[in-house]
Design a protein around this nucleic acid. Sequence first.
DNA 1: ATTCCTATGTATAAAAG
DNA 2: TCTTTTATACATAGGAA
Lengths: 169, 169
Amino acid sequence: METTVKKKGNGRKKIEIKKIEKKSNLQVTFSKRRAGLFKKAAELSVLCGVDVAVIVQSPAGNIFSSGGPSAIDSIIDRYLAATSQDGDRKNNMEIMKEIEVHEKVVKENKDLKGISKMGSEEFWWERRFDDLDVNELEEYIAAMEGLKKNVLAKVQELAARANAAPPPP
Amino acid sequence: METTVKKKGNGRKKIEIKKIEKKSNLQVTFSKRRAGLFKKAAELSVLCGVDVAVIVQSPAGNIFSSGGPSAIDSIIDRYLAATSQDGDRKNNMEIMKEIEVHEKVVKENKDLKGISKMGSEEFWWERRFDDLDVNELEEYIAAMEGLKKNVLAKVQELAARANAAPPPP
DNA sequence: ATTCCTATGTATAAAAG
DNA sequence: TCTTTTATACATAGGAA
């Protein structure tokens, strides 16, 4: 038998909406809720077909944030372009890699600061990057992380449709 | 007895995260979720003491969004300034009025378009207003509505502190 | 800092007013 | 069209690993 002394989680408790004092607690809550906020934003974006952006200032330091689905679409475009060249040997892992590449590209754009190819409406939110710091970009990347699942779903859908393209009779 | 034939709401059902086709449904979902998103953003802001902004593009048309707590702070400043002039005869209803005034001011700024006093970092998000339309401002106002409770709490706290200022001995 | 767990608080899809 | 109700799905605080 067991000693029955294994009380697991106590379950959620209600909290007041006021500044959290306990610092460690604040950090955890920040992480969880930021993730939740990004998820909700992504869902709203997909469900209603609208562009959504969320910008937060981390407690530690500077600002930063998540981009809209336009960015996601461009990632998908790049992926589909790549697969049509290489055949279908890229897998989901590769898709994730693609996303990470995108993240790097954005980061590099930040370093260049002279961004001229970024003038389109689609990247309005990226225009702010030349004002931002590296930490802020990390926030952005974190946001992209949160969207990976959605991207994956979208990509799979599009890829499946692309593969279903009928060959010439 | 009753005929037991009064099936009320069926309750929430799970939905896929994909673009909603039924237009009426989309409109409802957009409204609800946008409100929810703003609420979550406001909570994150208060709980963690960080600046949060949400920007969404309405399905109907253009962009717009909700501002960070900096805006709230400025509202509080204005309120405290007003109360120190008029004594303490303003009540909570008046505070709400103050907020509405602020909303109008923003709207007017939109019409002026030449905004020069808005150059500070604190109002970065307002800089976009000259690109926006009236409908978008209404969205902004709706967002402010959602934050009124937080403002009220904050104002009461600050007002109490102000009133507690010790008279010269 | 992430991740898993569990018990709950919240958000919300549908239906009804 | 907006608000309220109902029944549930989902998010998340606290604790532990």
